[in-house]
Design a protein around this nucleic acid. Sequence first.
DNA 1: GTGAAAGCGCTAACAG
DNA 2: CTGTTAGCGCTTTCAC
Lengths: 338, 338
Amino acid sequence: MTVKRTSIYDIAERLGVSVSTVSRALSDHPSISAALKERVRAVAAELNYIPNSVAVNLKTGRRRTIGVVVPGINRSFFSSAIEGIEDKAYKEGYDVLIYQSKDSAEREARIVRSLAGKVDGVIASIAADTTDHAYYNSLTAVGVPVVLFDRTAPAVEAGTVTVDDYQGAVMAVRHLIDQGCRTIYHYAGPQVVDIWQNRLRGYLDTMHQAGLSVGDEAVFEGRNTSEAEGRRYARHLLESGRLPDAVFFTGDFAALGAMLELQQAGVRVPQDVAMVGFANEPLCQWLATPLSSVDQFSYKMGYMAGKMVFDRLKGEPQVGIVIAPELVVRASSLRAGQ
Amino acid sequence: MTVKRTSIYDIAERLGVSVSTVSRALSDHPSISAALKERVRAVAAELNYIPNSVAVNLKTGRRRTIGVVVPGINRSFFSSAIEGIEDKAYKEGYDVLIYQSKDSAEREARIVRSLAGKVDGVIASIAADTTDHAYYNSLTAVGVPVVLFDRTAPAVEAGTVTVDDYQGAVMAVRHLIDQGCRTIYHYAGPQVVDIWQNRLRGYLDTMHQAGLSVGDEAVFEGRNTSEAEGRRYARHLLESGRLPDAVFFTGDFAALGAMLELQQAGVRVPQDVAMVGFANEPLCQWLATPLSSVDQFSYKMGYMAGKMVFDRLKGEPQVGIVIAPELVVRASSLRAGQ
DNA sequence: GTGAAAGCGCTAACAG
DNA sequence: CTGTTAGCGCTTTCAC
């Protein structure tokens, strides 16, 4: 199984030169003649030489790798953010190590602990089941820069890339009000996570400023933002017997689940209930009733988070970048005629 | 920036023992007393010790990492396959390095070349723009097992995990025939990739066996299986002036694009044109006309590909696993009434 | 322009 | 049960 690999020693021996010469030739050092470099490269190719990057890493102290920790990769928001991260990393000649926390803080903590010895920097979107993400600080403590995107944690010493969630919520709710909706509900995410807090605040402030009342039943805190939980919410609404003019959802999948469940019960969207989601997942545009949503620019977020890690590696100070969200209006919230 | 990290030497010095003792204590070696282990661990924690896995890797020759190369991560099929791979790897205590070939053989070759020195095994789904993937063999040559999933290449020395594409196509076409369709077209993928060849064969064989004719215009070879390309195909169909009873698409996104384009032109699905896709992406069920599709069990594929790499690492022989596909029938192909 | 040699942090004989 | 020591493969002073 384990084949003996050729090292620079083999090349050196074959050519009757020293390993340092080979090392220099391979890394295109100026003090080596072009002719020798060529011979070294030829022998390297002939011997099927493969540089052992582990040895390089040990020697140089750099790993040329960044770690990424997300709740799960199988969600368009995260996979396209990772796409952005990978694109940036590839440009810089870095590798990307991916981990899924599955929204479990325990799993996340284990991952983070193992990361410090393996990567030069970490990009993460935190698990949603706890407020204590202090373990990320152990990375910063040993000089590994951390960048949090989307879901951040104030207690973590890290650069951040976020969308202006508050503003996004304001835009969504204003739009619904403009469409003539008065009773507007909000499907919120677990309030342990800042983004969901901010969207709730944006919702509440906008309602109050418009002089619209927010009853006790107006805000629902979902266990997560999944389709299943959205369906559960819709059934809850249907059972309550009173439907609002509109619902602003903190996530597209919850909105999707609710929409399908409501439509199945004969409720018309947007005529009976208008809806706006958050994230602008690709699926929004494919639905029977295309879903209005607040775009978070996931790819860009990932790319910028990647850039920020490299900036920090180059010694630049820690910063927080806030991306302006954009409301994409589709059929699910258009009831101008009403 | 770069903080001096504590090594086992620091711990050893602090405790007045040797590094080997510390190393053994940390790895729970039986010959170290429980009391000493406890003291070592305490000091390690106090000094904020983080094992340098690079050094471990260099020493042991194993990297405890597997590399994954896919066309792109931002597609449900691949991201959920990766989810399966990561789950398996996590269980085995391995890390996962992700790369996107972007369907560029040149980029793929570069990635693969860099991989040999970094990982113990590789899992890949090959780029679609070439037939020559021989560079993967350089991995096998140095003892790095390769597992190809979904898109495989006969010239590559590798284990494989695939769905029975031929059978999947047969099921899809038979179903359309059962629904009363006679003129059935096929949207095929680039014929440089085996899966698309196999699906085309399944289509052709089934049509012939049913005694149905396959005209020149019946098979369309898309440049890829994207939504945009599906739309282009639909416009092409509309311009030709003659619509088939049904189209079997080799991918869900192409089917999606075609469906949206056709419906926009007033064509009814499935009454005018029935459709079946391939992959059973989540979006199939959310569409206005839910799309029938052949399920490929992407998560399972990824998980099994992961398992296969570890099996090969344990010395088991190279094998090819074929998963039985399953046809999921939805509204897009149901026209029993006709 | 080239070579000798130290050493990155760790593991694992081998010796006691 | 514990310590000494030799590397893993590579880069990089320092010397020539």
